[in-house]
Design a protein around this nucleic acid. Structure first.
Lengths: 207, 207
DNA sequence: TCATGGAATCGACACTACGTCGAAAAAATC
DNA sequence: GATTTTTTCGACGTAGTGTCGATTCCATGA
């Protein structure tokens, strides 16, 4: 997007920017067809009409491309989660909006995201990206849990940060496994609300 | 364990069985030190005192070794889950026993299991193994959910199979991410019970 | 006791993918 | 149009995988 001196790139802005863009776009195109692990640097280079060794002028590795792609995604990843994470109480609508945005992202970029997650152990920059995302979510959700508990809106239970971590794990695993992430939103809404607010041990007048 | 003509193996039982065993044991030893992805066939062969090409006499690939290792594990994986899965209602103790057994397995064999999960897409036998495990759990848990709902013991909610799938996803993701799986058991017990029994919308006399 | 055939071993080879280097071509700059 | 910077590429070296055919080992039974 901007004219930053990308990781593998020397300096200054110029013609080669088109090539860099072409590599990124090739990566996207290929990711629409097959998983990240099946994409080789040859293909990326070929897609941008350069030789394989020229690829290395633009990026240090395949994963550097992934990092760049992810960079353009980090804004989207928290999209619409503000009202939910900054709110309080079982605000079903806000949670649904947050999860819907996330589901759309998984629908459109699932291969990229799950490829990145799979490569994260063994690739520090990706591990850092993943950890950052998770921390951002867990921090805010844990704070929300604490607020709700203090206000008597949520039952006691696991440490807020642990519980928030479990919610994050569940989201990621569920979306990664789902063929159609959007079809999962309603159920995830129900389940997350239960995880946070459903204390089955309280007076138990079910049915 | 038994004297089956393993996948990559030609025929008959004999001396080379010791070698086969040695390869398996080497794999275990190495897995205790580093992730599956970092283990090479050279190392496995060296650990069993044979040349790299001799390795292929015993196994077709590194993943075939993993499959063999997993084979000896499948019994353990459902260990102690009977009382929980065949029972009914929020039987916290039974669930805890089931999860404890699973946590121990993840503690001891975490590298093997997560390595197998990571390699599953792209390796049919492993994908099948994973799918089989998941299906076994989901089937029984979904049946349990249906029973409980029919008996008025659990609130309505997501399709039983979907909900069961989410529970399975959560377990796997949580244990895979946890440094100390056993420390997670209590919280997972709480959370799973909430997922299944906690309908936060019912008369809500929290606190 | 020794031939024979299957079990087991290995070296050499071919292949794929990765990443580096230095030299050359193309563009931009003055 | 000379110089400097950007961009390109072919050649090379590496690591890991998997295959093949030749060879050695060894138990068996004639």
């Amino acid at each position: 997007m901007s004219t930053l001196p990308g990781p593998g790139r020397r300096r200054g802005p110029s013609k080669g920017d088109r090539r860099e863009r072409a590599i990124l776009e090739t990566a996207c195109t290929l990711l629409a067809r097959k998983p990240l692990a099946d994409i080789t640097i040859d293909e990326l280079a070929a897609g941008a009409d350069i030789s394989r060794s020229s690829f290395y002028f633009y990026f240090d590795s395949k994963l550097a491309v992934v990092v760049a792609l992810l960079h353009g995604l980090t804004g989207e990843l928290g999209r619409d989660s503000g009202p939910w994470l900054d709110g309080s109480g079982p605000d079903e609508a806000a949670l649904r909006r947050s999860l819907t945005a996330l589901a759309v992202l998984w629908r459109d970029q699932g291969r990229l995201i799950s490829g990145a997650l799979a490569a994260a152990p063994g690739c520090p920059p990706l591990a850092e990206w993943r950890a950052g995302l998770r921390a951002a979510h867990v921090d805010r959700l844990a704070a929300r849990i604490s607020r709700d508990r203090a206000a008597g809106l949520a039952p006691d239970g696991p440490e807020p940060r642990v519980l928030a971590g479990l919610v994050d794990d569940l989201r990621t695993a569920a979306f990664a496994a789902a063929a159609d992430p959007e079809a999962l939103v309603d159920d995830l809404v129900t389940v997350e609300l239960r995880m946070l607010y459903g204390d089955f041990r309280i007076p138990h007048p079910i049915r």
